[in-house]
Simulated assay, not measured.
Amino acid sequence: MTTATLANKPHYLILDGLRGVAAIIVVAFHVLEAHSTSHLDLMINHGYLAVDFFFLLSGFVIGYAYDDRWGKITIGEFFKRRLIRLQPMVVMGMLVGAAFFYFQDSVIFPNIHSVSIARLLLIMLIGFTVLPVPPSMDIRGWVEMHPLNGPAWSLFFEYVGNILYAIGVRKLPNWALAILVTLAAAALIHLTTRGATGDVIGGWSLEPSQFYIGCVRLIFPFFAGLLLSRIAKLTYIKNAFFWCSLLLIIVLSTPRIGDADHLWMNGLYESVSIIVLFPLIVYLGASGDVKGKYAGRLCKFLGDISYPIYITHYPIIYTYFGWVYDNKYKLEDVWPVGLLAFASSIALSYLYLKLYDEPVRAWLTRKLLLKPANTN
């Protein structure tokens, strides 16, 4: 059996590690979110910006891996590769979400008690495709496009970005791509500084305002990452993983800027983070190198579990969120349970990776991409 490789290129191991750092921060952010009262007092306040960082990383890696290979691969093969990489864990996330949903019982989920098994299974099957459900089909009461596994909204937009890239954006010259990215940056700044909340929180619903937020959150970082992959002249950065991780942690954990009367201040911070700091972090990470086997193993481990963590942790968060809300618990009273939710999300993701994701992706690769060797 033989298969064509995309390219004999070095692998950006540091970027894998940074993706893992961001994914772990997302889990911590969601656990602590259960103890917040609004978007103004979130702990690890800008943890939700990890999604925008993921989009930028994806655009960069897609451009690096595929931009110069279109003479050797087809659009169909590109989509097969993306489906093999992303779809198995989408299915797992929905299975876990359905299992947790069935056993959940919380007043914070207003629709949960009226959902039949048939309706639950229908939503799960739709979720397997990552296609969003309209608000009329919401079974939780939070108006999510994926009510069994909320974070899957970003996978829907990830696919949109991949489709736009494959069918047209990849053909844009750098000057045209730069114009697109500039217009997207302007839309992002307008959303964050002139919007109703002073942040980019949103994107998980097909409601028009939410869907617009999702589009804005996708278009700038994804295609800015693509542009960065084309124009960046990399240099060597010593200890890049440490410095990039530190900068990423600072950006995502910085307290909210300004108050309810000065929402634009926080919006400006988020715009600078997405437009300036995230591309800088990716550039520095791509410019670095991993020294030593332990550092390499750490980056690989973080990269391996990053996607499973992100796409499977939220059913646990739903349960923790409902338990905290129903009992009016404060963080100082139940922090060991919160720590357990955090740790179990990471541990289970590793099991999903090793027992399910890697074997399934290997099988799909053999079935969909490998070609019989020429025996003549």
Rank of each mutant, 00 (worst) to 15 (best):
T182P: 00
S245E: 02
L252F: 11
L248K: 11
I237P: 02
I213N: 01
Q210I: 04
A186M: 07
A224N: 04
S209P: 00
A224P: 02
Q210L: 03
F241G: 14
F220T: 00
F223R: 05
L206K: 06
W204K: 05
G195D: 00
F222H: 08
L227V: 08
R217I: 08
A224T: 05
T197P: 00
S209H: 07
S245P: 00
L226F: 04
L234W: 09
N239T: 11
Y212K: 11
L183F: 12
F222C: 06
P255K: 11
L248V: 13
C244N: 08
K233R: 15
A187W: 00
T193F: 10
L246Y: 10
V251P: 12
K233T: 13
L227Q: 05
F211I: 02
V251M: 14
E207S: 09
A196Y: 05
A224G: 07
G202F: 06
S229G: 10
A184T: 04
L183K: 11
T254V: 14
L228M: 04
V251Y: 13
P255H: 10
L218H: 01
S253T: 12
I201V: 13
A196L: 10
I231G: 01
L252E: 06
F241M: 15
V181L: 04
I189E: 00
V216I: 14
C244Q: 10
L191Y: 02
L183Q: 08
A186N: 01
G203N: 14
I213Y: 02
A240S: 14
G195E: 03
V200M: 09
G214N: 11
S205R: 05
A232I: 08
D199N: 14
T192L: 13
A196C: 00
A185F: 04
A186L: 10
I201W: 15
V251L: 15
A196S: 12
T254R: 14
F220L: 06
T193C: 09
V181F: 10
L218T: 04
R230F: 03
F220N: 02
T197G: 02
L188S: 10
L252C: 08
W204C: 01
I219K: 05
A240K: 04
L228A: 07
R230E: 03
C215T: 14
V200A: 11
F220K: 01
R256S: 09
A187Y: 00
A186W: 00
I249P: 00
G203W: 12
L206V: 05
G225N: 03
A196V: 11
K233L: 11
C215H: 06
L234T: 07
Y236H: 15
S229P: 00
I249N: 08
L248C: 12
L226E: 03
G198Y: 12
C244A: 15
G198M: 09
L248S: 07
L252V: 12
S205K: 05
C244P: 07
R194P: 01
C215P: 01
T235K: 15
V181R: 08
G203H: 13
I189R: 03
L234C: 06
L226P: 01
F223K: 06
G202E: 09
I237L: 14
R230L: 03
G225A: 07
P208I: 09
S205H: 09
L218P: 00
I213W: 01
K233C: 12
Y236S: 15
